[in-house]
Design a protein around this nucleic acid. Structure first.
Length: 296
DNA sequence: TACGGTCACGTGGATCATCG
DNA sequence: CGATGATCCACGTGACCGTA
């Protein structure tokens, strides 16, 4: 059964005359007869009584007509809903972002986006890099925000920020007098770091290895918030994104730049190549990138 | 990407049935 | 019996699909 046949059927119901209905539809009369016959064949019962030259609707025809009104109404509703979606009036947007960027990189963009498009349902999930890639590939996320993006055939990557890492030490620590530190500092100072399943920690490990040592933190914790709490309490120092440290502005913590080597991570938006990038995803991505660029 | 086969659909003419 | 309208049938056209 095709929509075209239902359209022909509805016109014939209005006219109850094959020739006039065909003229109204802009087709030849035999075509109309043929399509109505196909429809009747598919349904398995006559929709019209042909009594001589008179055409009248059967009970089955009346029932189908009633349903046709619903079908075409639903269709017009669907068209309206889709056009609203394209106009960002409704819909949903699911973003998976690294825990290390959720707290300080996204809030401004999220707030601004929500104010502009309050009817878009926004989900921001703090996830680890591997989970972000996995969920993107399973179509569970619209956008992913990752550090140190990897190449993947099915994923598009848009780098938008080079994030500098810095040492965070308790305010009364002797190191805070120095204008900068080198990574060797991790050899002497007790440190609190993310576990080595985290991209940020892997980066620190790699850089330390090039300097000929392995970092030995006194404590490992999975959230940046808990790590900075420990630093503020004087347990040790840590290495975290400078942007995050500036953002929390904890008075009991001093941020010291790291030099030789510079420690940076590339932050990127990632999305599926073959998936239609909806208007909400596109707008969010553009706003995030422009907000980060205006701050740097 | 070009080509050929298949299929669905529309058209026009012929035919049939019915009405006045 | 002529006018009108529905159906049948052959044919043309375009879309789609598989293949080289």
């Amino acid at each position: 059964m095709e929509l075209k046949q239902l359209e022909y059927f509805m016109t014939l119901c209005q006219e109850l005359h094959f020739t006039r209905a065909a003229e109204k539809l802009g087709i030849a009369q035999p075509s109309l007869s043929q399509q109505i016959r196909l429809l009747e064949h598919e349904i398995g019962t006559p929709l019209f009584d042909r009594v001589g030259k008179r055409t009248a609707m059967t009970d089955a025809g009346n029932i189908l007509l009633e349903h046709c009104y619903h079908i075409f109404h639903e269709l017009s509703q669907a068209r309206a809903a889709i056009s609203e979606l394209q106009g960002l009036k409704r819909g949903s947007l699911k973003i998976g972002a690294l825990l290390t960027v959720v707290n300080y990189l996204l809030p401004d963009t999220v707030i601004e986006f929500h104010r502009s498009y309050p009817n878009i349902e926004l989900s921001i999930l703090g996830l680890r890099t591997g989970d972000i890639y996995e969920r993107l590939l399973q179509n569970e996320l619209d956008l992913g925000i990752v550090a140190q993006p990897m190449e993947h055939d099915d994923l598009e990557t848009v780098p938008f920020l080079t994030q500098h890492l810095a040492l965070a030490a308790p305010i009364d620590h002797p190191l805070v007098e120095q204008p900068f530190v080198t990574l060797d500092v991790l050899k002497e100072v007790p440190s609190i770091l993310l576990p080595d399943t985290y991209v940020l920690r892997q980066l620190i490990n790699d850089k330390c290895r090039t300097l000929g040592f392995e970092p030995r933190p006194v404590m490992e914790m999975t959230t940046m918030e808990s790590i900075t709490n420990m630093v503020a309490k004087g347990i040790g120092a840590t290495i975290l994104p400078k942007g995050y440290l500036d953002c929390i502005g904890d008075q009991s913590i001093q941020t010291i730049p790291i030099q030789r080597p510079d420690l940076t991570t590339e932050i990127a938006v990632v999305y599926r190549k073959n998936k239609h990038l909806c208007a909400a995803s596109r707008v969010f991505m553009e706003r995030l990138i422009s907000s980060v660029k205006s701050e740097n």
